[in-house]
Design a protein around this nucleic acid. Structure first.
Length: 223
DNA sequence: GCGACAG
DNA sequence: ATCTTGTCGC
């Protein structure tokens, strides 16, 4: 049976793995022409016993869906702030493996280096699959900032002490900003412009919106 | 000891 | 994440 001690050991092992993974994160732009951009997200079923991971690939820069994949797996890790990847990344990576073609960039629902150990889910997935990734979260995990101007495109740096770990980006006028940080093979400078290029009239990028709908409704919208 | 805490 | 009514604004 699983004891509290086992739980603590899994937490400790996960933190140790993040310390190792962070060493492999590449924070420079290492990607070619963007033709396919993917969005990934996760939803749950059976009272949280099953995770449903979704990935939708959009043709860039049109942002029209061209492929998708859906994977369901039993949940094996609890939600612990800072350890989200150990709960969602396995299923998300399985979904990415099912695509017919490898995307040129993946935008994740969660943080990249804007994380206590600079290893959020975007870094985790990026390093393990060696794919360019960006983290685009709806809420802050760590860091301090001053709110960006109310216009679309306005941004302000997200700091942890004196180190910039991401951006607070206003993707839509008068709406709550999103938290953007590089995952793997993407620079701090280009992350926000790439997210803006994937965003149209809504707060969240189209990649995330499509993936979110697939993950929660279990199917791609008919329009 | 008291808050904060991605999804 | 998930549930769910009410409300604001274009």
């Amino acid at each position: 049976m699983l004891t509290i001690d086992d739980h603590d050991e899994r937490i400790a092992a996960a933190i140790a793995e993040q310390q190792a993974l962070r060493q492999r994160v590449v924070s420079r732009d290492v990607f070619g022409e963007l033709r396919l951009v993917a969005g990934v997200d996760a939803g749950f079923e059976q009272d949280g016993a099953v995770i449903r991971a979704a990935v939708v690939v959009l043709r860039f820069p049109e942002l029209a869906p061209v492929d998708y994949a859906l994977v369901r797996q039993p949940v094996t890790f609890p939600y612990v702030p800072g350890l989200l990847a150990f709960r969602e990344a396995p299923a998300i990576m399985a979904a990415l493996d099912r695509l017919r073609e490898t995307p040129d960039l993946v935008i994740c629902d969660g943080h990249g280096i804007a994380h206590p150990r600079r290893c959020g889910i975007a870094c985790h997935i990026g390093v393990l699959l060696d794919l360019p990734t960006i983290g685009c979260a709806k809420q802050r995990l760590v860091g301090r900032f001053t709110p960006p101007a109310p216009e679309r495109g306005a941004r302000s740096p997200l700091f942890d002490g004196h180190e910039q770990i991401g951006w607070v980006l206003r993707t839509r006028a008068d709406a709550q900003p999103v938290f953007v940080s590089p995952g793997h093979r993407v620079s701090l400078d280009r992350a926000p412009e790439l997210v803006m290029a994937c965003t149209t009239r809504f707060r969240l990028p189209e990649t995330t919106r499509f993936a979110h709908r697939l993950a929660s409704h279990g199917q791609l919208p008919l329009v």
